[in-house]
Design a protein around this nucleic acid. Structure first.
Length: 520
DNA sequence: GTGGTGTCCCAAGCGTACGA
DNA sequence: TCGTACGCTTGGGACACCAC
């Protein structure tokens, strides 16, 4: 059982980076313990201050077919439950497994099945659904013929069928509704009991019919759950208690560089392919230049590789005491941009390319714009690079000058692909929101949340530009505002905005102008 | 039928900036 | 000063879809 979106706070209790446990987790523990100690002095709440511990069934795989290391785990959770395949649900035939890739990675197999549009194929996967959370109590069925009834009367008809005061209640409610729920659930009265139960349960790991990656501890009391709420996407009333990450060693074949949309250069270790947790890892980010240098990494070194939270490949460090080739030197950061060969500048821990004309940065920026603003265009990575290499595209406004004929001349580009792109571009002229545009322009420090905030305060990019040029942006302060002001002050970006306006992107000029343009 | 590409998802680490 | 929020980044595997 696992929380929706897997957004429970993770506490890798047996992880060797235990000291890195997040402050959010600590706060949750303190808060939970505070409430439990309060409960001990308040006998009237004896039913409400409980903790639920449940098995964390994350993308469980048929063990007979899967010969992955026991420390591996995998997950695929739907919004309100976990998908799993267990021995008790029948065995798979040999010819079924390759179709769905079972045996390599159950998390992705389950994710693929959920996306599959072929029900017959999905039915053969022997996956089961375990419901783990009730988002809202089911209500009395409403009658569409009652739409004319007064609001108060309608509300009375929509009273919950079940009164759910706890997580435990919600599981029983789901069971009553015919959903399968996990049998590995315990309801305990103290935090220590919950921890002890988690340890005991984890000890059974090798004897279960499915794979797990830990346990989830949840506050049982719905009222407390509501009071605690969530921070960002992390609920404060639940905590994932996980096994240590998988670990292996491999050799570094080389180090390559990637360029981000803000001009950040990131070193990537190219590795001898190694299987870890059912996936073959061939490369891993070194985070930033400083980390790579501090690691004292030589090409050819044997390194310790983990998958953080069983997902992201990460190099933990160099295996000590190994024999290196005579004369081998530790990796040194480059002085030139891998894309434009311009000078790189060290800023804090990162190497940055500040050349606004850098084609590498331009390509990344177009990719971001296409992903955010050209929905459904299927224009991404390699396609953008093809356009840049063909000279069709250098920057975002160039998208609006492309013609179907110019795209159809490209090798491998057919009418359907071209039509999708042209439709998405046409759509973006009139339907793009300011929030999307701000996100799509890849302005430093403007991500999803900030874009939403700015879009609340401004009706158009021009309006925001006016304030930014005056030096004050509503809703922002400090360095974030300075960065935005600086972005609008750049002649290149001014030209970009002008070109977008000329292309007819409505949210640049605002609703009035857009309406006028439409009328024209 | 095959190969290439796009999208989505996972969830953590890290850095920066803001506000109490 | 510290806690918090947010932005950015990461790799691999699954299916869908398109071009050939």
């Amino acid at each position: 059982m696992v929380d929706s979106n897997d957004s429970t706070t993770t506490c890798p209790h047996t992880h060797r980076t235990h000291q890195h446990r997040s402050s959010i987790t600590r706060e949750l523990l303190i808060y939970v313990m505070h409430h439990l100690s309060h409960q001990s002095r308040n006998s009237s709440s004896r039913h409400s201050r409980k903790i639920i511990i449940s098995s964390c069934i994350l993308g469980i795989i048929h063990r007979r077919r899967c010969r992955r290391p026991r420390s591996s785990s995998s997950s695929s959770s739907s919004r309100n439950g976990a998908i799993h395949s267990a021995e008790g649900h029948g065995s798979m035939s040999n010819d079924q497994a390759p179709v769905l890739g079972v045996g390599s990675n159950p998390r992705n197999t389950a994710a693929g099945v959920l996306r599959s549009q072929n029900p017959a194929q999905s039915a053969n996967t022997h996956l089961s659904f375990l419901a783990y959370q009730l988002l809202r109590s089911p209500t009395q069925p409403s009658d569409s013929n009652n739409a004319h009834l007064p609001q108060q009367q309608l509300q009375q008809q929509q009273q919950p069928l079940y009164v759910v005061r706890s997580q435990y209640d919600s599981l029983r409610c789901l069971e009553a509704g015919g959903f399968e729920v996990s049998k590995d659930v315990a309801r305990l009265s103290s935090f220590q009991e919950a921890l002890d139960a988690a340890e005991v349960w984890m000890g059974k790991r090798n004897h279960l019919a499915y794979e797990v990656d830990g346990s989830v501890l949840k506050l049982d009391d719905q009222e407390l759950v509501g009071q605690l709420g969530a921070k960002h996407s992390d609920p404060l009333w639940a905590i994932a208690w996980k096994f240590p990450p998988m670990e292996t060693t491999t050799r570094v074949r080389g180090i390559s560089l990637t360029l981000g949309k803000q001009g950040k250069v990131t070193p990537i270790a190219i590795l001898e392919p190694v299987n870890i947790g059912g996936v073959v890892v061939k490369q891993a980010s070194l985070g930033n230049v400083k980390i790579a240098m501090e690691m004292g990494l030589h090409v050819g070194d044997l390194v310790v590789l983990i998958r953080a939270n069983d997902v992201i490949p990460k190099i933990e460090g160099v295996v000590p005491g190994q024999h290196r080739r005579p004369g081998s030197q530790p990796w040194q950061p480059p002085s030139q941009c891998p894309s434009c060969s311009g000078p790189l500048v060290m800023e804090n821990r990162d190497l940055m390319c500040h050349n606004l004309q850098c084609s590498g940065r331009g390509t990344k920026q177009v990719e971001v714009f296409a992903r955010v603003c050209l929905e459904g265009s299927k224009l991404a990575g390699k396609s953008v690079k093809t356009l840049v290499d063909a000279g069709v595209l250098r920057s975002i406004p160039d998208l609006y000058n492309m013609t179907p004929e110019s795209l159809l001349r490209l090798p491998g580009w057919g009418p359907k692909k071209v039509q999708l792109i042209m439709d998405a571009i046409a759509h973006s002229r009139t339907r793009l929101s300011l929030q999307q545009l701000l996100q799509g322009l890849a302005i430093s420090s403007v991500g999803g949340e900030t874009a939403v905030l700015l879009a609340k305060n401004y009706r158009s990019l021009r309006e925001l530009q006016g304030d930014a040029e005056a030096g004050a942006v509503a809703g922002l302060a400090g360095k974030n505002m300075e960065k935005l002001v600086s972005w609008f002050a750049s002649p290149d970006n001014k030209a970009l905005i002008d070109r977008l306006a000329q292309a007819g992107v409505a949210c640049v000029e605002g609703p009035v102008t857009a309406a006028a343009a439409a009328a024209a």
